[in-house]
Simulated assay, not measured.
Amino acid sequence: MESQNLLPENDQDLLLAKKLDSLLQMGEGISSVQDPLIQSLLSYRNLEHSNIDSLEAESSEIWDRVLSETQSPKRAKVTPLKTQRNNTWVWATAATVLIASFLGIFWFTNLDSTVLIAQSGNNIETISLADGSEVSLRPHTSLYQIELSETKRAYEINGEAFFIVAKDVNKPFSVSSEHGIITVLGTQFNVSTWGNETNVFLEEGSIRVDDLNQNSLILKPGEKATIANNLLSDATDADAEEYKDWLNNMIVLKGTPISQVIIEIEHHYQANIDISAMDNEFELISGTIPLDELSITLRDLGIILGGTFRQINLDSFTFIPLN
């Protein structure tokens, strides 16, 4: 529904403000206005004026007592307290009511509904969504709920996760990243957002992948697609083991560039790894590396690369070739 930025003509606060303005223009009082708020304000004003009048009368008596106690022959001139009896504060109150009404409408129609619903720490976390879907979050991954309604199930991910989506043809299920959107009806797929790109692998069912330039493609089971530099790649065949390996706390390498392996390990452990001493960081490597502990992961990777990783500080490491 489109939000309205103007109050309707029959709004009670607006009508009240118009009536007050009309009385002000004619120089008349507002005591005739039969409105609970105005009557309450008038009662409060009368009470305050009564208190001030009482204070004016009491001020002379107080001064007389002071003079009597000090036996002073001189008496200072007492200027009775006065108050400016106008209706400015009444208009300010009415204006406040109108402003509050407008801000309330504006605020509640412009709230950001994105909510963080799950965040993994150093271990894999598996959660169940309200519709029965299941999501496994790789370490250091955040999952946000964008919208959950009668017609839509929308989420956003930062990190990597494997989704098993409960089928519901009336409620499309979508997962967004900073690079694009994956839309499904019921399926199993993996999506990762690390390394300045979004990678999607489909294991079962059917999904549509859209980039931010409105390019899209349909993936079939066993296919993958990548969105990098705002460009959506073609669908290509992929090995499920390479995309689901982290669910078993390992990395399966099958002709994988070293630079890509480093990025994946950095994300998994939230570490910084320097491989600038390598001759060719784009060299393809194969093997299996456990992800149980960072020191073991780097030890095994060092064996594959022909070197070792030296720890610089708590979360930083650098590669040292043995040759």
Rank of each mutant, 00 (worst) to 15 (best):
Q34K: 13
K244M: 14
K152Q: 15
G29F: 05
D239G: 01
L42P: 02
R138N: 15
D300Y: 13
L116R: 06
Q4F: 08
A76W: 11
I262R: 03
N230H: 10
W91D: 09
P139C: 03
Y144W: 15
N249V: 07
E223P: 00
T308S: 13
V78E: 07
P321H: 03
V175A: 03
T88P: 01
L24R: 10
P321G: 04
K77G: 10
Q12C: 01
Q214W: 02
T193F: 05
V90G: 01
R85V: 15
T226L: 07
I207M: 03
P257A: 04
E293A: 08
V90S: 03
P139V: 03
D13W: 07
I182S: 01
Q311L: 04
D315N: 13
Q71F: 06
S72T: 13
I258E: 08
W89N: 10
R45D: 09
E242R: 10
A238S: 12
E156F: 06
E160N: 04
D239E: 12
E223V: 00
Y243G: 07
P172F: 00
G27R: 00
I320N: 06
K77H: 12
V200G: 02
I251S: 11
V33W: 03
L305E: 01
W246K: 04
L212R: 09
D274L: 04
L111G: 01
S22G: 07
A228G: 02
Q12P: 01
E156A: 14
A271R: 09
